[in-house]
Design a protein around this nucleic acid. Structure first.
Length: 487
RNA sequence: GGCGACGUAGCCAAGUGGUAAGGCAGUGGUCUGCAAAACCAUUAUUCAGCGGUUCGAAUCCGCUCGUCGCCUCCA
């Protein structure tokens, strides 16, 4: 079985076949750095972080390139609003991006090129296109001639006729065809600019990815990724530029992830319905956010809600609690297993089933289902046999727990020590208590006296009092214990 | 208007031609004075609707309805 990936270009799942044996070359469109990143950006980074981790787990060498767009209309506009230098603003938000990425625990790409550091490569590429008749200078700008290619529109599945019928195209007299797009923008007063054969100016948006992917990965490489909103025009135009210039294929596989939505509407700056990464990490930890983001397959829309995030949090707690319980076990001298056939089969097939899910176009929802399926079994076994666990069963439980952590790491979860996580949570909850532990003990003791006298009214009253302080009681054979309710 | 995606239990979500994973919630049981927690069991004769192909369809095809996205900057 090989990794199957849905290719936007062919609209099919295809087996991954890297050009170079066992070496995957991946280019992902990164951020335009002019503001803090929101949860949609987090999804993008986390999806490709997971893709890279999984491919490496599957034995591939991965060269991962992700760019920064650090020169662009929006950066200039924002800088002007704030009276800040555009490049300083771009650099500042790249720093903020790193702060968020580190908080999310994403791996750094192997190469993170910035547009402004590749102006010469872009100029060379544009010159190549001009020489081939695929681009033309006009009024200080340079435009790509879309009619020069016979298959412009093949990624987004639209024809030039379709697009012109759409008629949502700005009037620009300099263009031969309304769908022609800008490769180089002539300088306007006060804007950042670079020398070029066509006069001073700056690059258009799409050309940077063509130039930088070529430089670091070659004319043709394996996977190009980004959000669904980049399919048109950004990726369509990259294909036009790169294929036009090289005469070769560009990226073999195009991966596009779905949006994060709020109440089923796309989260976006223009709608103003976005939450920044740091907003969310203020309340929820990174692993919770990861589990939430991976709870659906990457191509589907993901609806953000506090409830969904809380669900992810309790799921994560449950796994950590079970793993911590396994850590605390000790075996007996017995050598005969008490684990039934069905449970054993589930545990032993964990890795294989997880891999099946992930091989299926990185279906993290399926893979997480497998993880929980095993947690269920582990938790039951700890409950039923924990106090009296034969050596071989002890070994199996620990083995499976180890695999679970390894697989979790592909999603960037279960990276911490389970006992520590559980202890820290208790500590955090204790810090929020509105009652001292001594008072709790006193109340429990008062209740136990009442219970001994079968004074249930007083007993229940005490229990309710404690519940108001988020303390829930558990009467067991060894006496009464208490826990803090996480609200 | 053009192009595309999606519609599976109360909610989230897998399944992509062989008879509905998993999570949250619910119900019954064990336990308990009653609870809580935990465990055990159970919860969709059916996959938006209607046709068609097939021995067989949630899965393939057609139409209808609904939701969302792209066509302008967007992850």
């Amino acid at each position: 079985m090989t990794v199957q990936i849905y290719n936007t270009l062919t609209r099919k799942k295809e087996p991954l076949r890297p050009l170079e044996e066992n070496h995957v070359k991946l280019y992902v469109c990164g951020i335009t750095s002019y503001d803090y990143c929101h949860i949609g950006h987090a999804r993008s980074s986390l999806v490709f972080d997971m893709v890279v981790r999984y491919l490496r787990y599957r034995g591939y060498k991965v060269t991962f390139v992700r760019n920064f767009t650090d020169i662009d209309d929006k950066i200039i506009a924002r800088a002007n609003e704030r009276g800040e230098d555009p490049s300083a603003l771009a650099l500042r938000f790249i720093d903020e991006f790193y702060t968020d990425m580190d908080a999310l625990g994403t791996l750094r790409p192997d190469i993170e090129p910035k547009a402004t550091e590749h102006i010469q490569e872009m100029i060379a590429l544009i010159q190549n296109l001009v020489d081939k008749g695929l681009a033309y200078p006009a009024h200080g700008d340079v435009y790509f001639r879309v009619t020069g290619l016979d298959n412009y529109g093949r990624l987004s599945g639209r024809s030039l006729d379709d697009m012109q019928a759409g008629a949502r195209i700005e009037v620009n007299a300099a263009k031969e065809n309304p769908m022609d797009f800008v490769l180089w923008k002539g300088a306007k007063p006060g804007e950042p600019k670079w020398e070029s054969p066509w006069g001073e100016g700056r690059p258009g948006w799409h050309i940077e990815c063509s130039a930088m992917s070529k430089k670091y990965l070659g004319d043709t490489f394996d996977i190009h990724g980004g959000g669904k909103d980049l399919i048109f025009p950004h990726h369509e135009n990259e294909i036009a530029q790169s294929c036009g210039a090289s005469g070769k294929e560009f990226a073999n596989v195009w991966m596009h992830h779905g949006f994060v939505t709020i109440k089923d509407e796309k989260m976006s700056k223009s709608l103003g319905n976005f939450l920044t990464i740091r907003d969310v990490l203020n309340t929820y930890d990174a692993e919770t956010l990861r589990l939430f983001i991976f709870s659906t397959q990457y191509r589907n829309p993901l609806d953000f809600s506090e409830e969904a995030l809380r669900d992810a949090g309790s799921g994560l707690d449950r796994i950590y609690t079970t793993l911590a319980e396994i850590e605390a076990l000790s075996p007996t001298a017995e050598t005969e297993s008490k684990i039934g056939k069905k449970d054993r089969a589930k545990l032993e097939s964990l890795q294989e089933r997880f891999q099946q899910g992930m091989d299926n176009d990185f279906n993290t929802a399926q893979a997480i289902g497998v993880l929980f399926d095993c947690v269920k079994v582990l938790s039951k076994l700890v409950r039923v046999h924990g106090a009296n666990l034969p050596q071989p069963d002890y070994d199996l439980l620990n083995h499976v727990a180890g695999i679970m952590k390894e697989l979790g790491n592909i999603l960037g979860v279960l990276t911490r020590n389970p006992s520590t996580v559980v202890a820290e949570k208790q500590q955090r909850l204790r810090a929020q208590l509105t009652i001292t532990e001594q008072e709790i003990e006193e109340l429990i003791s008062r209740r136990n006296t009442a219970r001994a006298e079968k004074n249930w009214a007083t007993s229940d009253e005490v229990r309710d009092t404690l519940l108001e302080h988020n303390i829930v009681l558990q009467d067991g054979p060894e006496g009464t214990t208490w826990n803090i309710v996480d609200r």
